[in-house]
Structure formats: structure tokens, C-alpha cells
Design a protein around this nucleic acid. Sequence first.
DNA 1: ATGTCTTTGTGAACGCGTGCACAAAGATGG
DNA 2: CCATCTTTGTGCACGCGTTCACAAAGACAT
Lengths: 253, 253
Amino acid sequence: MATGRTHRPATRSRGIPEATVARLPLYLRALTALSERSVPTVSSEELAAAAGVNSAKLRKDFSYLGSYGTRGVGYDVEYLVYQISRELGLTQDWPVVIVGIGNLGAALANYGGFASRGFRVAALIDADPAMAGKPVAGIPVQHTDDLEKIIDENGVSIGVIATPAGAAQQVCDRLVAAGVTSILNFAPTVLSVPDGVDVRKVDLSIELQILAFHEQRKAGEEAEAAGESEAVIQTPKESGKGPDGDVPAVMPA
Amino acid sequence: MATGRTHRPATRSRGIPEATVARLPLYLRALTALSERSVPTVSSEELAAAAGVNSAKLRKDFSYLGSYGTRGVGYDVEYLVYQISRELGLTQDWPVVIVGIGNLGAALANYGGFASRGFRVAALIDADPAMAGKPVAGIPVQHTDDLEKIIDENGVSIGVIATPAGAAQQVCDRLVAAGVTSILNFAPTVLSVPDGVDVRKVDLSIELQILAFHEQRKAGEEAEAAGESEAVIQTPKESGKGPDGDVPAVMPA
DNA sequence: ATGTCTTTGTGAACGCGTGCACAAAGATGG
DNA sequence: CCATCTTTGTGCACGCGTTCACAAAGACAT
């Protein structure tokens, strides 16, 4: 099943920083767009602009993969697309199961982004017997009872949890026990998993709350409206006295 | 995590580090659960375990908000819930618009997490005239033409983009022009916004690709550790600059 | 070949976030 | 009131990630 995995592109292959890994998909997307427009080469400056990052950062990121650029010219788009795809493991097929076919699960099943890049929805699983057999996105929903069998027969190693919060940990445990080692969690819960299992979480309400925090801060500064531009003022760290404006630093009684 | 933002000197808004802000919602969720069980106080150790973080980190996070704990006892749950809620701006109402009512947009509209905490879906907007008036999650969908009017009349400052990638930037521009200053972007695009506008992005396919990377790495290590007698992994000749044999089959965006 | 010009690749400095470890603060019991 | 025990709040050191700035590498023109 797994083809040769002893890859060593003439440089330090192991030890790609996590932050870099998180940006590779971004670069890949930008490069794919260039590829479709048949652009042969691209400079770090251009690509960085397209990906919304600093060009030095981009060059350093690529340097972890190896020296794929040509000084004075830039990077070969096709070659880079291939290298990043391979580094991310997108040259192979990743069967994925989605557990919890509610509104969100159905939306995920229909999401084109899955199929387009090496990921294939191998099965949809739901606890509701009434859902069983019903096709969603052209795939019949299967019952939770068969979870282990489905994982095993399809060689699934990536699972997506889109269940209510209450069921998430239990589903997670079963997925892990059945052999899944990477989980994308949409349920608003902190999952606990054994070592060796990766969990990434996508949490709507957390994202909104972070936005609300900044929004409130912006509103506060605006209300203060002393005529200062917000970018440059850096209040020196003071302790004790300090007019921090709107919010009273309430101390517990 | 994923937060694509235009550059800004990593400002500590009122001295609270960005990393701390991102964890506050997590603490709040754990505290709310404790509150519902009528637990009066909690130690940093317990709360940290519930939130899945280091206890020292949690104490330091709270120290940015002020000294709300009592040594030898712990933190007062109710008080802390209130303080964090206020800090995050959840004590006020945040009207939100969702633009792009496809599968994902509809799922978001139905998502309970919105209403539960200060956020209220003020309007659903879609470009398809056939959708207009059709109720989704009990809210009638309105047409994009009225976007500016809807933003204005409802005092919306937070927008959610769930459109196809092609429409995202255009929608974003209109939202910003209409007064929205915080955007949660689900479209697989890098949005460019003026200073002062916050963008957070949620990108499915990026999350999956990051998981795939680690999955591939795990598989590789495993194969390496499981004895090297496999003749399959013979070092390819790597003649010239061409990559090794297996064809990449480049995927479209 | 030689010089000029462009762009990469990276050494080094800096800043942020994390986690340890401990002193200070307060509760609790005698 | 004093001793002891628990838990907070934080000083400090370390490591990761980001950014600057520049030498080296190659393309290209003459």
C-alpha cells in the first residue's frame, strides 16, 4: 500500500517547522493557480504576495524542502507544485470518513475541497438509524455500529468528527481504537487522545469570540477618539496607575 | 490554527497577548460547564486539565486579566465566567451576517453555537435570486443587492463569508465598504483588507493537508522502524534534476 | 570572458510564547 | 497567634518563529 517513503532531497528533510507545514498548503494553492494560467516561473516576492506572507519567510520555508529555486529567475511553478504536493503527502490517496451527518457533516460531504486534492470521502457515518442508507452527496450514510468495520476495510487513517459535543469523545475513542491516527474535530470539545494521534480542531464559536474581542477593542479605542492613530502608540508597560480607558480593572472584593 | 491577517506588529491589545486571547474562549467553555454543575471554585490545575492546557500557562493567562484567584483556594467560577465574558465582549449582542447560503452557509446558520453566546444571526445573504425569501434556519434569505442596506440597518460589524472562492474577495470588499470590520472567512482564498479590519480564516482543505503531512510522516517512520528488508525502498538513481518515478498527477485548486 | 543585474538562500538578531520553579498570599488547624 | 499546607502569581530561561540584510549564485548582455 504505502510506496517508498525514504525520501531525502539532498538536504535536511526531517525537521520541517510546524509553522512552515501550515503554510505549505497556502503556497500550493497559489502555485496551482499560477500553473493553471501556465505561468512558468515565479519569484519569491510575487508568490509571497499571492499567499499573503513575507517573502523572506517564504524563501526560508522553501529552503527547508531543499533548494528548488534558481537565483536571478525564481521558482519553477510546476516543479514546486510537485515538490510541495509530495511533501504534504498529496500524491497519494487519503480515504476519509466523516462521522456525524447533520447540517455540518452534510456540508462537509458536499464540500468540493475534499475530493479535489488527494482526499476521498470513503464513508459517511451517523448514529441515527433513520439516516442509514440515505444518500448524502451521493454517498449512502452508514450506521455507527459498523464504524470499526468501515475504518478497517477502507484503510482509513483520517477521521472527521462533526457530531454534537456530547458524542465527540466517544466517537473519537472508537475511531482511534479502530486505527485512525489523524482527526479533524468540528465538535466544540477538547478531545483527549493517546500519543501518536494528531488532532486539529475547527471551532466556529472560538473564532467568533476572538473576533468579538478585537471588535470590542476597536470600538473602545474609537470611542476614546483622542485623535491618535492606533498603529504606533505603544503604551509603555506601567504598573498600578494607568488610564486604561473604558474597562475598569476591577479587583475582587 | 489559522489566522490569515495582513501584517500588523503583533499588537498586544491592551497588554493581552494574542495567544492568550485565543485560549480565553476555551477557558470560558470549561468554566461554563463547571458553572452548570454548580461548582463554586476551581483550581488552576483542574481547569487547565479541562481545557487541555498547562496550568502555569493558564495562570499566566489569567494574570493578564487581573488577579481573580485566591491563593490556597483557586478561582471563583461564576466571577471568572463573568470576567472572561466581559473581556471577550460577550456581554453585548453581536449581530452577524452570513453571506453565501450554500451547504456550508446553511450549516452555519443552523449551528447552535452562534446564538448561544452573544452572537445573533441578523441576516442571511445569497447571490442566487432563487434563494431570496426562502427561509433557512427560520431566517429568510435576502439578496446580495441589499447587502449594504442590511449591514447598515442592523449595525453589523462581523461578517461571515461562506461563498465560493471566486466571489469571496468581492463580497469582502462590499462588507468592508459597508462598515464590517471583522470577517470570518470560510472561502479558500487569501482576502486582502485595509488596516483595521480583522480577518480570521477557516480552511478545511488546509487542515486536512496538514494532517496528511503528519500522517505521511508517521507512516514513513513506521515503515523505517519495521525493518529495512523491503527491497522496495531502494534509493532511486536520481539522475539529473528530474524527480523520482511515480507521477504526481497535479490536482487543480 | 567579463561585468552587471536579479533573486535566492541564510546567518544573525530579535521578540513572543511556554514552562519551570519558587516565593508570596491566604486558608486552615491547633 | 503561630505553624503548616495549599495554590496563586510571576521572574527567568529557553526555544521557536519572524524578519532583516547581504553574500553567493546564476542569468543575461556585451
